[in-house]
Design a protein around this nucleic acid. Structure first.
Length: 488
RNA sequence: GGUUCCUUGGAUGAGUGGCUUAGUCAGCGGUCUGCAAAACCGUGUACAGCAGUUCGAAUCUGCUAGGAACCUCCA
């Protein structure tokens, strides 16, 4: 590949040139949701961030295998070792089969992602479907001597591991500090050290989700699934592992330790983490209870929302910030994103109708190059968007009849918009089509044709009546140089 | 307390050691228009504070203040 794609690697805390293990193949693993509740705005961030990466890598010519897991087992409340399984708890509360809960929220997650324009990953493995692989992985760690059995459960021996490798390299911690700050938790007598984490947990008698293993009937520890499934589908070494920043510790740290212990080598080459979405300067999250679900955004049905927001508004809002910055949610910011995106859409529509002239009378920058440069610099989507706005000015000026554009430049602009706005940023701008839609569009057009006629006759009463009545119904009518435009 | 990071104009949000310090939204002025809307043009004392490095820093270093994330489940 010719390009130089820079990716910020959490492991080195620097931007690095991206070099896949085996060109043109790229393996990419991203931590997906735990399906025990509706997805909220925070869940949209990694989904969209890595969707952009997936799209851009594909555009660059890579053959990407994108794995995004579904956590449907082994994820415990409160404390990683003693809490109740999240899925099981929800199932108990709702009197459902655990897998019924999983399916319900997974369906809703998929639906929300589809609305947000997030492409489905290549593989979407479930933790519950890979118990055997996880047990095998635990065995490897036991064989390597970095884990021990205690009361039917298997724990990772962090101290031993830290002698041979460095535990904490991703999050910049060392175990001495960790030991000092680790809280005393109940029921840790099984563990040799407070830092040790469960690889396999023996199930209590009342625990519904359980599988047989050489050690006990139980279930895998939380971090296990990513190590097992990531290496199963992408190999013992692969290129990119992504997720939210809040997963750096302990989740990704433990993953590194597990994989290194079991395989004797580093599995992941580039660790990428998206920043958080905040609300009033604070992280939006489940534990803080300050989250707004995606459906609530789509319907406007939440007390903090002054209106409903289209999925594309949410996507645009997220893309207007760099993925490693926090984004603060507010109605004002979302409304601004909504208006800004609407303007971009209108220009895109105008672009399709522009008539070319002999030459271009405005300065045309090399937008294709500018956009690509921005994307190559650690996926700088806000810059890409700013270049598109720059091009928008040309489109609108030409549409106003105040400038001209050559056929070649027009073609280039169309291609750049299709490539960056639609294909890479993944924004949907097309209007709904269909027979019913076409019929009603024709009707509105007809009304406005009549209005145009009235205007020619200086019949302002009729022309204003049509415009005002349409406005009352929610249509926005805009007069142009030689006709009209309208939108809802 | 430890680790990591942040602080940019009315709101949001990029960015680089010096070239015009993006863009969006809002505001103001103008052009256009029968009027309006849209569009276009113009406009904004912005880079937390202090000190240092430098010919030059908002961008590098140090200190101070404020804030955040992680250290427990979290995207």
């Amino acid at each position: 590949m010719e390009h130089k794609l820079l990716i910020y690697n959490t492991l080195t805390r620097t931007k690095q040139i991206f070099k896949p293990l085996k060109e043109p193949y790229v393996g990419m693993y991203v931590c997906g949701p735990t399906v025990y509740g509706d997805g909220h705005l925070g869940h949209a961030r990694p989904a969209i961030t890595f969707d952009i990466l997936f799209r851009f890598l594909t555009h660059l010519g890579y053959k990407v295998r994108y794995v995004r897991n579904i956590t449907d087992v082994g994820h415990l409340e409160h404390d990683a070792d003693e809490g109740e399984d999240k899925i099981a708890k929800k199932a108990r509360l709702e009197q459902k089969e655990p897998m019924e809960v999983v399916q319900y929220y997974l369906n809703r997650y998929h639906s929300a992602m589809e609305k947000l324009g997030v492409l489905p990953p290549s593989i979407e493995p479930h933790a519950s479907g890979h118990i055997i692989e996880q047990i095998d992985f635990v065995k490897k760690i036991l064989d390597a001597g970095y884990a021990y059995e205690s009361e039917g459960s298997i724990y990772f021996d962090v101290k031993k591991y830290n002698k041979d490798h460095r535990y904490g390299k991703l999050s910049g911690r060392n175990i001495e500090d960790l030991l000092e700050t680790t809280r005393e938790l109940d029921g840790q007598s099984e563990k040799h050290c407070a830092l040790d984490f469960a690889l396999w947990k023996k199930a209590q008698p009342e625990h519904i989700m359980r599988w047989p293993s050489p050690w006990s009937d139980g279930f895998p520890g939380w971090h296990m699934e990513c190590s097992a499934m990531g290496t199963k589908y992408l190999g013992e070494e692969f290129d990119i592992h992504g997720g939210g920043m809040d997963l750096i510790f302990p989740h990704h740290e433990c993953e590194i330790a597990q994989s290194t212990a079991a395989l004797g080598k580093e599995t992941v080459h580039y660790w990428m983490h998206n920043n958080m979405i905040t609300i009033n300067g604070q992280k939006m999250g489940k534990s803080l209870g300050n989250f707004i679900t995606l459906d609530e955004f789509f319907t406007g049905n939440h007390k903090l929302l002054t209106q409903a927001y289209a999925p594309m508004t949410i996507r645009f809002f997220i893309l207007q910030a760099h993925y490693r910055s926090t984004v603060d949610f507010s109605n004002e910011a979302l409304v601004a994103a909504e208006k800004g995106f609407a303007r971009l859409c209108e220009s895109y529509a105008r672009l399709q109708k522009l008539t070319p002239s002999k030459e271009t009378s405005m300065e045309m920058k090399n937008y294709r190059q500018l956009c690509e440069d921005a994307m190559l610099d650690d996926l700088n989507t806000p810059i890409v968007i700013s270049h598109l706005y720059d091009a928008t000015r040309i489109i609108n000026t030409v549409a106003d009849g105040k400038a001209t554009i050559s056929e070649a430049d027009l073609k280039e602009l169309k291609e750049v918009f299709d490539l960056y706005l639609i294909e890479i940023l993944g924004m949907r701008v097309e209007e709904n089509s269909g027979a019913a839609n076409d019929a009603y569009k024709g009707a509105v057009d007809l009304l406005l044709e009549i209005r145009k006629q009235a205007k020619t006759n200086k019949d302002w009463a009729t022309s204003d009546k049509i415009r005002d009545e349409l406005a009352r119904l929610g249509f926005k009518v805009k007069d142009t140089k030689d006709g009209f435009e309208w939108s809802l």
